[in-house]
Design a protein around this nucleic acid. Sequence first.
RNA 1: UCCUCAGUAGCUCAAUGGUAGAGCAUCCGGCUGUUAACCGGAGGGUUGUAGGUUCGAGUCCUACCUGAGGAGCCA
Length: 437
Amino acid sequence: MTDAPRITIEKAADFAGQTVVLQGWVHNLRKSGKIAFPIFRDGTGFIQGVVVKANVGDEIFEAAKHLTQESSVRVRGQLRAEDRAEGGYEIEVEAIEILQAVSAEDPFPITPKEHGIDFLLDRRHLWLRSRLQHAIARVRHSVVKASRDFFDNNGFTLADTPILTPAACEGTTTLFETPYFDLGSAYLSQSGQLYSEATAMALGKVYCFGPTFRAEKSKTRRHLTEFWMVEPEMPFVELDGIMDLAEEFVEYVVARVLEERQQELKTLERDTSKLESVKRSFPRMTYDDAVKMLQAKGSEIQWGADFGNTDEGILSEGYDRPIMVHRFPTEIKAFYMRPDPTRPEVALGVDVIAPEGYGELIGGGQRIHEYDDLVKKIDEHGLPREAFDWFLDLRKYGSVPHGGFGMGIERCVAWICGIEHVRETIAFPRMIHRVRP
RNA sequence: UCCUCAGUAGCUCAAUGGUAGAGCAUCCGGCUGUUAACCGGAGGGUUGUAGGUUCGAGUCCUACCUGAGGAGCCA
């Protein structure tokens, strides 16, 4: 279609005044007798087209009037700044080539009006084309890219960990099981952490970034059965160093999204002032103090219990940035978490709790690096020692203080976007009642 | 696993136990600056499934199915 430059909508401003070619889809169409306004989208954004009957002639105008939603098209026209158009630019259409016309008898199911969540999730493969879903996906991209850049630029080496893992270290109820040749069963990984402890002893500071799986029967807005985690692990570090890294990381990720995704955050109607205040240092409080504060604010919580969702909400109230709660009761934490040497009833772990009630963003801490202590914990938790022989080796051959954390990408994206439910932060969410499309 | 709520047109929802309806979407017509455009008209129904009560059930009862929200659970 001519030799005019093929452009993307996000770069439209660079081509104002020029004749260009745009390839994309028809998002919506408003029309009157002699003028039509198709909205095009091309994956990078949305732009209004203008088709004037007097300029294009009857044939092209008639074709434009009958464009159906989501038909794929190639459009030639002049790009120009226009205050009346959303986004500030529009394309004066001269020619339209319809690549595939959506049939009127079987129209695109997701109309510009309201739909229920069940309907939309059944059509997730099409729902992704909607404005809000597009914006969320692009924020997610920035969160992922920023996470990688942060660790890459701070001396971490990417060392991804296996998804198929042996034996159940935590009991099989929350693990997805799959047959594995002649070796019995394998399980989908819930976390790369144990393996990252091994790679950290080989490579220094490392991180892994991949999907994790939990067969929990959770039905809440914060849970998926398949979600992505980024998990750094460092040798020669103690709890304070881990907390320093966590706050620097979160600050960086939020700043990058603010830098790259203003348009998307606007589409999402996100109050960005709530993100601009996410700066170091984050408030740090002990679990002891957190429990006292919760009790003072009316929570039923007793020392020794884990926080419920409402507790996390109460804790984050009154703070304009994430808070870090550390030194949880050893009892409720994982077997590998290092007890505080000065107070063994609490462990050197930290949770980073997001503002605005979004709950736990990061969980991490310092690991037990002493062989005898780790064996004792494995026995106390009733875990099979032989399953952890390789993990125990790490404490036999040059053990050092070490630790790290994991951040759930979906919870982070939900918080930054200000949306209700994590299911919209991943292209194809997996939940207890849904495994398609 | 438990609690609560929902299931009616393609979608979102109405409908005192008494003729199943509206908006949007689709089609036809009108409109030269629309912003989820607007105005007029048309077509479109096994009321989730199976029983039951009743002269009569979308509505009441029972069971089941599906989904949502929450709790529990979530190194």
